[in-house]
Every structure is written in C-alpha cells, then in structure tokens.
Design a protein around this nucleic acid. Structure first.
Lengths: 220, 220
DNA sequence: TATGCAGGGTGGTCAGACCACTCTGCTGAA
DNA sequence: TTCAGCAGAGTGGTCTGACCACCCTGCATA
C-alpha cells in the first residue's frame, strides 16, 4: 500500500488505527480493548507489530495491561511516563530545583489569574476552604489549596503539568497543615485572593513557600 | 529472578538497562546505539523484547531508528510525542486556548524572573537583541526573543515545557518581525526589563501578545 | 582509475510456539 | 441441593528463527 511512502513507521500507523478504533467504538477510560490477537487479525498485521504499538502506548500511560485479563484504556493517572522521562529529560534539568521552580510558576500564575478575575474570586470553594481551616480540618492539605486554585482557572493543561511536577517534587507536600503559623498564612492568602489584592496574595504565597521550605529542611 | 516481583513489566526493565548503558558508555545525542541483536545478547533477552522497549522510546522521541543504519540517540527536538499526546491527552484540554495560556504562563514567569534579578538584567544578550531590532535583522524572530528570556532564567525544565507548547500553538510563531509597531513594542519590553520595571514589562508583553493575536486572526 | 556488484550488517515484519496468569463453567463430592 | 475444586479457554509475556528491505563497504572487473 502506502508502505513505501510512510516507510518504517508501521507501529505509528497502528497507534493511529487504535486511536480511531477507540473513538469509533466509544471505548472509555477503564474499558477493555480487543485482545492482541484480535487486533492483529483485524488490522491485518502480526501480533508482534500490535504489541510494539501497545507497549509504546503503555509507556505513555495511555493504556494498561494485565496479564491474563487484557488491555485497558488507562485513566491516565498512573504515568510511567513520569519515571522514564525523569531519567532522560530531567537529567537535563539543572536540578530538582528546576522542578520546584516550575511548579511554583504554575501556582503563582493560578493565584494571579484567580485574583484578577472577579468571577473566580466569588467561587464558593474559597469560603469553604476558610471554614475547613478554622475548624482545623485535618484532611485539609497544602495540596488541596493549591490544586483548587489551579482548578479554578479552568486550565486543565496547566493542572496536568502541575500534577506531574508535584509528583516529582512532592516529597512532604501531602502533609496536613498542623502548624498554626502556616494556617494563618494560608488564611491570609485566601483573604487577599478573595479581596483581589494580587501583590499581597503573591507575597503571602512566597511567605508560605519559604516556610514550607524551611520546614522541609528541618525534617531532613 | 525478581520477575515475579516486578511482574510483567520486562520492557520497562529493559528501558532502564538501556538508560544505564547510555550513561555508562557516555553515548551522546546523535550517537549510534548497539544493534538490536547485540543488545538482545548483552541483556540476555530476546530481540522481540528489546524491540518493544526501543519502539516505546522511539515514540517518546528519545531515540531514532533508520533502517539499514541503526538506532540513534535522538537530540530530542523531533518529538512524535507531541503528535501522539495531542490526540490523547490534549483532548482533555479544554481547547487549544489552554496551550496558549500555559505557554504564556511560562513566558510571563521568565520575564518576571529576569526583571527582578539584577544579574540577569545585565546580560549582554539584551543589548545585542536591541541592536538587531534597530538594524532590522530579518532573522530575528519572536521566538528568539522569548526563548532567550527563558534561557536566561536557567530553568531548563521550563524551557523544555515552553518548547513543547510552542510546537502546539506555534502556528505563525516563527514569523520574522516586520511590522514597525511590533518592533517598537518589543523594544519597549526590552527597555523595561533591563530597567527592572516588572509591571511595565509585563504590560508590554500583554500588549505584544494582543497584537500577535490580532495579526493571527487577520491572516486567517 | 572508475564503475558496479556482492556480501554483511541493520532495522522491519512475520508465524508459531510455549509460559504464566485470570476467569469461568462444569463436575463431583458433601 | 450446594459448594469446593478442577479443567479449559482466553489473555498477555516471551522467545525462536526466518525472511525482507535497506545501507554501507570493499573487492573485482571493465
């Protein structure tokens, strides 16, 4: 066919066909894909070729395979991608500091966006968060606060990048707030955000991050 | 061995071993990797397994294969990754607008960082850029300006993310500056950055982007 | 000297086999 | 009748050996 043209990238074609198949048959996240043998027959290629395509997609975290059960469309939470890219791409990063810096870039941007947008400032989520802070909700964590802010911006790509970065730098990021001082800072941050004071909100954020950093050093 | 433990993810192990091999033998971007047959023998696995690992890495853009020649470590400019993820992950993004927004997040952050750091403001690159602008250097492009700013922050991860985002949203982003008005804005932006006026620099940036956006709409 | 061809090495693909595992339904014992 | 246990089918995981298409190199020939 067009083999001579597209040359040597058969497995890319197969991935493409799989994508079509998935969207045609309306396969949702978590659903099972046809077996490797069936796919090979359907696409008129060898099982080897199908497997190469599937393994690639698995590495990307697009699918998930379970021996004896089948191949499933992944809900793309479990990215092996993270581990693999970490050794290749991340070795290019100056250090883990780049990851932290980049994560903070996204967090600052979210705070700025929310603070500058009246609609977003009025969201009930902020009030709810303040209540939880006052009541000493032990389930409340730093992660919640930042995540909700990024969620509010409705930029799902930024949210996704932030989520990946958090996994890297996420050491001690899930710790629930205990220190009174930290609670106070976050409370201030929320206040300033809701009031629309961009500069002050960002200052609160920096103060918060400084404290988190200091705390992280102590525990080490 | 630990097969039963790490279970069914042999090809991930192989990728790991390849990474070790690459770093041990100091294989640089563009260099050739051992052939599939040699790798299979060296790692004591079948060529099939090696190929599954290699195809995965190829999809990530980590390596490049040329029939009859061999497998080469990619210089990680040509990411098929972009195309593949675009259909899967990007469909989760609200729209292409997310990509543009996120790209701008990184650009604003870079401008802020440079403007707030006296050392970075003094870099000779800014002066050089102004000269090129004045002389109407036709090679000078928008991309250069933004890229140099991010490069200056020395956050290679942010640079990498920006680069990927640019490939998505990069339509008409490589156009050389022609409009006098645009040159003036960029000139101002450089001035404000070097002067350390964060707010004004950011205002210039927004103005610039507005104009670019308008221009993009016109050409369509 | 220059041309062209043959051989070896490389990735690309395939068929078929076997293993380990999971699930299901049937069989036989309680 | 009920339920435990087993056998079989189906799945992914791996391997072998083979053949093809392609690139490069070096040797033989014109």
């Amino acid at each position: 066919m067009q083999n001579s043209q597209s040359s040597s990238k058969r497995f890319l074609d197969i991935i493409g066909e799989l994508q079509s198949l998935i969207s045609e048959q309306k396969i949702e996240y978590g659903d099972r894909l046809p077996s490797e043998r069936h796919l090979a027959e359907k696409l008129q290629v060898s099982r080897t070729a199908v497997r190469e395509a599937l393994r690639s997609m698995e590495l990307l975290g697009l699918i998930e395979t379970r021996r004896g059960e089948g191949t499933f469309l992944s809900d793309f939470k479990k990215h092996q991608l993270v581990e693999v890219l970490s050794t290749f791409i991340m070795q290019q990063a100056r250090s883990i500091q780049d990851v932290v810096d980049t994560r903070m870039i996204h967090e600052r941007a979210a705070i700025t966006t929310v603070t500058e947008n009246e609609e977003l400032r009025k969201l009930p989520v902020w009030v709810g968060m303040q209540s939880r802070l006052r009541e000493g909700d032990s389930v409340f964590s730093r992660e919640d606060m930042v995540r909700e802010t990024i969620v509010a911006t409705e930029n799902r790509l930024s949210l996704k990048i932030w989520f990946l970065l958090k996994q890297y730098s996420g050491v001690s990021f899930d710790i629930a707030i205990e220190a009174d001082e930290e609670i106070a800072i976050v409370h201030d941050l929320l206040d300033e955000m809701m009031a629309g004071n961009k500069e002050k909100a960002l200052i609160c954020y920096e103060k918060w991050m400084d404290q988190v950093e200091g705390e992280r050093r102590e525990t080490k």
